[in-house]
Design a binder for these strands. Structure first.
Lengths: 351, 351
DNA sequence: CTGAAAGCGCTTACAG
DNA sequence: CTGAAAGCGCTTACAG
């Protein structure tokens, strides 16, 4: 089967519509923008001409003459983690509801790619950025390209140390505290913290929170291991390293659910039954957490709300560049499931 | 802490660079585009002026004068399914490597949203689209807006019935056949097909493939149930409906891994052990498939390759609008795991 | 309510 | 190798 693809043809412009309708270019422009100063008849005639010619408005040309491009750059590390997927989708929706178009790029957690994306989108005159920064991003990476140029931007999900900007994210410290307190409550005495990128801000925040939660019982984290890979391999590596450090702790706190899933699998492959033998808790509460074996206790960070808030803050910043920088932290919710309560039960039984 | 956000300032233009460097506008333009007809000294002087002024190129203005906007619209149903996430990331990467910028929108499987996105991006003069269409998309939805206007577009992952276009996707029929044949091989005699959107093209293709695979042993699908939700609830609904139709089949084929994960969970909650009591196989081979309990047998569709191929085909179409429409099907690979081999073993043992 | 003119920031022939 | 002029498709004051 051979089907001809239509050739590119020259598109009609506002000039053609003016000629076809018998009005001036300015009048056509006003009709397009639904100006109240155009009479019903004039509008009808112009619109009819547009339909006859198959006219398609050129927003690029329009925006070039205006102050804003009605375009937003979203630069995200990746979208493999469903937390990021949800966050990204929420931003896209909010942005579109404001009549904006989204330019998207993934840094894949590489700073060089991220910088290239920021540069290209700036050349396309986006009105600003929402950035889920690559893990290793330094303050200068954004300071020199965005702050210095006065380009509005909101950071999401990952703060950057020593960089002041608008920011929206889940409250990682609070999530950690909830998890720590819960582990104290079920009677855990030794706790390992596994996964995440070493020394990254979200990891530090989550770990700090867990420590706060444990402190009420005079406890602290006994094992602390990072790992760049959040897949099954990463889980296995973490579990093996943990076991190599001595005995298995009462509880494992994973950096996030992606790590936790791999850790659950690794534990089983080592003959250690997650839940019964060792309690496991984590961050994010992805859809997959509920259907793990056993169900995974996890702190929900509400990525869709984070995304919506980030968009709201972005447009607020666009409207008023003078307001002080704002940090919005979304309160988490700990969802308790078998991965910690099973352990609690076996403990009680043993008494 | 209160930090002042710099005000929007008027940006220097090519005119300013011309004045600062002492050359004409045209010369500056040629320097920017690295024309070979500019001398080293001239280039150096112009570049120095650009640095002094903090000049930022305006690609919108440049593209408006050119034939192409170097911009591509990606309209995807969603990115919650990791298959789509991987596909999207591969497209973003390929597009960027060609110096293109990606405009992104999610239809959330709503045709109205999809149409709105196509319209908006067309008004932004994207050079064309890559579309992962909403499930209910009709041929006319794309025919009237894209075909009629001669806008290049490539469909990915989901074909549309009675619509001829460039298309790239995993070979769903082939995947199904591999699964069907494998089930015959392990000795399954009754097979249920669960999940997916009723009557959708990918569902029909996958089902057709499974039937082909089963046919060699004179078998056919005995239960055929669709379900719009691919979460745990959907899994439960499907399993309950299946059990209501009589006894549990030897094997379940899930429409994809997202459904399969929910189905595994639902089976366990009903006291049916997946793998041992009923074999389960599925499509996509997501990262999560390997760490299910038991490991899930699944046909890998290679979304990253689908994305790369779709991008390649898109640019080919852009370069030459006259070549015949092309359909690229990516050959799948069946990854066999415990969810089917456990059953096989128990069966053999029973003999 | 409508029109003529200038301009947004670039590129593209066309001369020299 | 470089410059003056026209143009991409719109919007924006400014008159009338």
């Amino acid at each position: 089967m051979r089907i001809d693809v239509p050739e590119r043809v020259k598109r009609p412009t506002i000039n053609d519509v003016a000629a076809e309708s018998g009005f001036s270019r300015a009048t056509v422009s006003l009709v397009i923008r639904e100006s109240p100063q155009i009479s019903k008849e004039t509008e009808a005639k112009v619109r009819a001409a547009m339909v006859r010619l198959n006219y398609v408005y050129d927003r690029r040309a329009a925006d070039m003459r205006r102050k804003y491009s009605h375009t937003l750059g979203l630069v995200a590390a990746n979208v493999r983690n469903p937390y990021f997927a949800e966050l990204t989708m929420a931003i896209e929706e909010a942005v579109r509801n404001r009549g904006y178009t989204l330019l998207l790029g993934y840094s894949r957690d590489e700073v060089a790619r991220q910088q290239q994306l920021l540069a290209t989108m700036t050349e396309r005159r986006i009105d600003g950025f929402i950035i889920l920064p690559a893990s290793e991003t330094e303050p200068d990476d954004l300071g020199r390209t965005l702050l210095a140029a006065g380009i509005p931007h909101v950071l999401v999900a990952r703060r950057i140390r020593h960089y002041s900007s608008d920011y929206v994210g889940s409250d990682n410290v609070s999530s950690g505290r909830l998890i720590g307190q819960h582990l104290v409550q079920i009677g855990a005495r030794s706790v390992a913290f596994l996964g995440g990128v070493w020394n990254s801000v979200p990891r530090e925040d989550r770990l700090k929170g867990v420590r706060k939660g444990l402190k009420s019982a005079g406890l602290d984290v006994t094992v602390d291991l990072a790992c760049a890979s959040d897949g099954p391999d990463g889980g296995l590596e973490l579990v093996e390293q943990m076991l190599a450090q001595g005995s298995c702790p009462d509880a494992i706190v994973a950096y996030n659910d992606m790590y936790a899933f791999g850790i659950l699998h690794a534990l089983r492959s080592k003959g250690i039954e997650p839940g019964r033998s060792v309690a496991v808790a984590s961050f994010d509460n992805l859809p997959g957490a509920a259907i793990q074996v056993p169900g995974l206790t996890s702190a929900d960070g509400f990525p869709a709300i984070v995304g919506a808030e980030a968009s709201r803050l972005f447009f607020e910043r666009l409207d008023n560049t003078a307001t002080p920088l704002t940090q919005v932290l979304i309160e988490p919710n700990l969802v308790v499931r078998g991965s910690t309560t099973d352990w609690s039960h076996s403990r009680l039984r043993a008494i």
